[in-house]
């Protein structure tokens, strides 16, 4: 049993190391600066340093089903401060990519937002109103109702139009084509 875990450890770490962004995972000294700097870490199931430790311990299922990676807002605070220049941001996104490829769908509001954003991007522009409605509908109606005053403020100042945006004139079709190609690549196993 132990031998298997070690083998699992070896394979999962190699898998992440092979994913673009995850190359330097073996150099981490587990200092914790990434977790200490992360502004959203309160919402992570496991802080980023621990995710790296879990990957190295071979806990594939635990890592990929966790909601952690999806809460990264790509602020790069960790990357700037990491004493080994590992770029935890890219590493976490690599984990996210693997999780998505494997079809993991952990329950976290940010995931819903991500997916929503991506669908919206197919048009080349984001219809914020619809996206927000969708988001709150899928996650918490109560929270959505609480946000009404903010919504009204934005709408009344013309910052959040109620109608869908016109399709991007410039390169709208190109954006759609790019998104389709990305989807196809992801289905076929990563951007290699």
């Amino acid at each position: 049993m132990e031998t298997e875990t070690i083998k699992e450890a070896k394979t999962f770490v190699d898998e992440v190391a092979a994913e673009p962004g995850g190359e330097k995972i073996n150099e981490c000294i587990q200092c914790g600066v990434c977790s200490g700097s992360c502004p959203t870490v309160e919402w992570w199931q496991y802080p980023p340093r621990k995710i790296i430790a879990m990957i190295r311990a071979g806990k594939r299922d635990m890592v990929l089903s966790s909601t952690s990676a999806f809460n990264c807002v790509t602020c790069y605070s960790c990357m700037v401060r990491c004493p080994r220049n590992i770029n935890p941001t890219q590493l976490i996104h690599a984990v996210e990519a693997i999780a998505e490829r494997e079809g993991y769908k952990p329950k976290t509001p940010t995931l819903t937002l991500h997916r929503g954003l991506r669908d919206a991007m197919k048009q080349g522009r984001v219809w914020e109103f619809s996206l927000a409605m969708l988001f709150y509908f899928k996650t918490s109606l109560l929270e959505g109702i609480k946000m009404m005053p903010v919504a009204w403020d934005l709408i009344s100042r013309g910052l959040m139009p109620l109608l869908p945006p016109k399709r991007t004139k410039k390169g709208g079709q190109e954006v759609t084509a790019i998104m389709k190609a990305v989807e196809a690549m992801q289905k076929s196993g990563g951007a290699k």
Partner: peptide, 11 residues
């Protein structure tokens, strides 16, 4: 001081 207590995994 903002840090992660890595031995227990808590920020």
């Amino acid at each position: 001081v903002k840090f992660e207590n890595t031995l227990i995994g808590e920020k």
